[in-house]
Amino acid sequence: MTNVQRDGRVALVTGASRGIGAAVARVLASRGMRVVVNYRSSRGEADEVVASIGSAGGRAMAVQADVRDGAAVAGMLEQVRAAMGEVEVLVHNALVPYAIKSFETISVDELGSKVEQEVRAAFLVTKAVVAGMTSRGYGRIVYLGAVLSRRPDEGMIALGTAKAALSSFARFVAQELGPRGITVNVVEPGPVSGLLHAALDQQQQARMAAQTALGRIASPDDVARAVAFYAGDDSGCITGTTAPVNGGLVMN
């Protein structure tokens, strides 16, 4: 039986208009959290996520902000505080665009820009919520990583390097914020169904699934449930860790 949390904590999910972010928003709302659905440009999809949460009896709001923009992040937090209060749970999922190129063809600017923007976005959203979490002596921060940070794949040097930097960043933040009652962890998905359709055909996806110990590719809900564990009270003595959600494609 699911351990349902009904404490009404305020959770901010960045990049939550679709895919993993939308799944996370719905799962957290189903566990009693009041969810902020952040989006950059997909207002219609964000509104659909909010509506689906509302129709299921939850509470959510959509707030636009490019999380690479400090002023936009500050404005988003002002809106959230006015409507719901301080953010107690941050799930940073927003994906910064990147070049899909080999080491031979990628430029130093393309690689460096991805790494810089990845860390910049994580830094800005984390800075924005830490004061409120500190005032309560409670906080949950979850970053979405990628299995590519540990399992290289063709053309993915920019994303893999950036997510490796994010994982390292998370451990430093975890160490510093731990005494304040704030936990910081990374959920690291492998390939996710529903997000591969544009890149891989059914046969390719089947071959990828066959490489996993479980014989299947993770769903957005699989990832969302792992995030929800770190976002809740059951994970209160876990920080600075990385949880792989890849069906055993890569094992620690």
Score class of each variant (00 low, 15 high):
170 A>H: 07
207 R>V: 04
223 V>S: 06
47 D>G: 13
139 G>F: 00
39 Y>G: 12
40 R>Y: 08
157 I>Y: 05
87 V>A: 06
125 V>P: 04
29 A>L: 03
122 A>S: 15
236 G>T: 11
194 G>E: 05
210 A>M: 05
211 Q>M: 14
47 D>Y: 02
135 S>Y: 03
172 F>C: 07
186 V>C: 01
98 Y>M: 15
22 A>Q: 12
120 R>F: 01
227 V>W: 01
27 V>L: 03
190 G>C: 02
196 L>T: 09
152 P>L: 00
12 L>G: 09
28 L>I: 04
252 N>R: 13
69 D>L: 05
60 A>R: 13
185 N>T: 01
45 E>T: 08
156 M>Y: 11
19 G>Y: 04
35 V>L: 08
113 S>H: 09
252 N>V: 08
82 A>I: 01
122 A>W: 02
76 M>F: 06
209 A>R: 01
44 G>R: 14
104 E>C: 06
3 N>H: 06
95 L>Q: 15
224 A>V: 08
76 M>T: 10
143 Y>F: 15
2 T>P: 06
151 R>P: 01
1 M>S: 11
165 A>L: 11
54 G>A: 10
20 I>E: 02
182 I>D: 04
50 V>L: 12
171 R>I: 04
166 L>M: 14
63 V>P: 12
243 A>Y: 01
87 V>Q: 08
54 G>H: 15
62 A>D: 12
70 G>I: 05
69 D>N: 12
24 V>K: 05
134 T>G: 12
177 L>D: 14
22 A>C: 10
180 R>C: 06
94 A>C: 10
223 V>N: 08
238 I>C: 05
217 I>M: 12
67 V>H: 07
158 A>C: 15
101 K>W: 03
110 E>L: 14
169 F>S: 00
154 E>D: 09
86 E>T: 12
218 A>W: 02
139 G>H: 01
116 E>K: 12
12 L>R: 11
148 L>F: 13
61 M>T: 14
155 G>I: 09
206 A>C: 08
85 G>H: 07
26 R>K: 15
198 A>V: 15
113 S>Y: 01
133 M>T: 04
85 G>Y: 05
17 S>D: 01
4 V>S: 08
17 S>T: 02
193 S>Q: 11
87 V>H: 05
232 G>I: 03
211 Q>R: 13
204 Q>D: 07
206 A>Q: 14
235 S>W: 00
63 V>D: 09
172 F>N: 06
159 L>K: 07
57 G>I: 04
13 V>D: 04
45 E>H: 06
201 D>I: 08
240 G>I: 00
54 G>V: 09
89 V>L: 05
222 D>P: 12
239 T>P: 00
200 L>R: 12
134 T>D: 13
241 T>L: 00
14 T>R: 07
44 G>Y: 10
187 V>M: 01
25 A>Q: 07
110 E>Q: 15
173 V>H: 04
15 G>F: 00
97 P>E: 10
7 D>W: 02
53 I>L: 07
78 E>I: 10
158 A>F: 03
220 P>K: 09
223 V>F: 05
182 I>R: 03
24 V>L: 04
219 S>V: 01
247 G>K: 12
238 I>E: 00
94 A>N: 07
18 R>G: 03
101 K>N: 07
23 A>V: 10
241 T>V: 02
143 Y>S: 06
47 D>K: 11
84 M>P: 01
251 M>S: 15
85 G>D: 10
79 Q>A: 14
44 G>K: 14
210 A>G: 10
12 L>T: 12
141 I>K: 00
248 G>R: 13
